[in-house]
């Protein structure tokens, strides 16, 4: 445990945030918070049979496949289609008024999962049942504060939700995360399904192997508490502790690696030896000038060819050899 006195600037930062928080809380308490997303009072209709008169197979906005989803299982007392749970109206709200046209126009149900209903109101419906487990950290998560609706990612009316399948999940994530979409097509990448029909570019990993899109305690919505803990899930050999540690490795794998895809082998953020030289400017080889003079036909420098710096500093993630102080053992 490291104990250091709080410096002036730290104090300033903490004070700033605390002031902001307390100020806002005060404002919040002063303004009696009302629930503007509450569902207005409506009457229930007579259940799913009435809905399926219009929302049946072959019709626009067909919803018949709901019965092939977990929500359609009536044997589960918590499911919308269990006895007394109001079927479709469990999510869409009491919709008796939706059954009759008014002036030739059919009023929508109280809750529609599109722009007619505020995102908060939509999500509130989903979270009424799905508020534990993976959704534990949803309130205040990045996707929450960015205003995403559950249905932006989840397709709730089809038997197999694409975002729940390792083969099709990445396509859902790539709808917004276009940078990652391109990165997974680079020569060095993790085997996540890319945007290609190539039979060799198969998805052996899913985005959710590392990320928890509903929010987490870790950075970048990672499932584990830190970046390194996440990487150690599959690369446990790098956890150590080693006798001779390499500090930037122990602190954050992304100091040298980029996780989704890179121009450079082993997902490195830059090419050796210059990557190493961004932190090593010592006598002789670590500060030497490496350029085209070090490669054939001009020359052959051992920090430029083969594994470059790692030709010698082989245990760059840490060494447990008593003579491995320079990570060569």
């Amino acid at each position: 445990m490291i104990k250091t006195p709080i410096c002036r600037q730290q104090l300033k930062g903490i004070t700033t945030i605390l002031s902001l928080v307390l100020g806002c809380m005060g404002t919040g308490w002063a303004v009696a918070a009302e629930d503007g997303d509450a569902i207005p009072e409506h009457e229930y209709s007579k259940g799913v049979k009435r809905c399926m008169l219009c929302h049946k197979e072959g019709k626009p906005m067909a919803a018949h496949e709901i019965f092939l989803t977990p929500m359609g299982i009536s044997g589960d007392p918590r499911a919308p289609f269990a006895d007394g749970n109001h079927d479709c109206e469990a999510c869409h709200g009491p919709s008796k008024s939706h059954l009759k046209r008014k002036k030739g126009v059919r009023p929508p149900p109280p809750i529609t999962f599109d722009d007619k209903t505020p995102v908060e109101a939509q999500n509130k419906v989903c979270l009424a049942c799905h508020d534990t487990g993976a959704r534990f950290h949803w309130p205040g998560s990045v996707h929450d504060t960015e205003g995403l609706a559950c249905v932006d990612c989840h397709d709730r009316h089809v038997p197999d939700d694409p975002v729940m399948n390792v083969q099709t999940q990445s396509a859902v994530c790539f709808k917004c995360h276009q940078e990652q979409r391109a990165q997974f097509l680079r020569q060095s990448r993790h085997p996540v399904q890319g945007t290609t029909s190539s039979l060799s570019h198969v998805g052996l990993m899913a985005c959710t192997d590392c990320h928890q899109p509903h929010g987490s305690a870790g950075p970048g919505a990672l499932k584990r508490n830190t970046i390194n803990e996440q990487c150690y899930d599959c690369h446990a050999e790098k956890r150590g502790p080693f006798l001779w540690e390499h500090a930037p490795v122990s602190e954050d794998c992304t100091n040298c690696h980029t996780p989704h895809g890179s121009n450079h082998e082993n997902l490195l953020i830059a090419r050796q030896p210059w990557l190493c030289q961004q932190c090593h400017v010592a006598r002789f080889h670590s500060s030497d000038v490496y350029s085209g003079t070090g490669i054939p036909p001009s020359g052959a420098d051992q920090r430029m060819l083969g594994k470059q710096c790692l030709n010698c500093h082989v245990q760059i993630h840490g060494s447990n050899h008593p003579s491995g102080v320079r990570l060569t053992r």
Partner: peptide
């Protein structure tokens, strides 16, 4: 916290 109908704080 939802401080007001349209104002949220995390």
């Amino acid at each position: 916290s939802k401080l007001a109908q349209r104002l949220g704080l995390t």
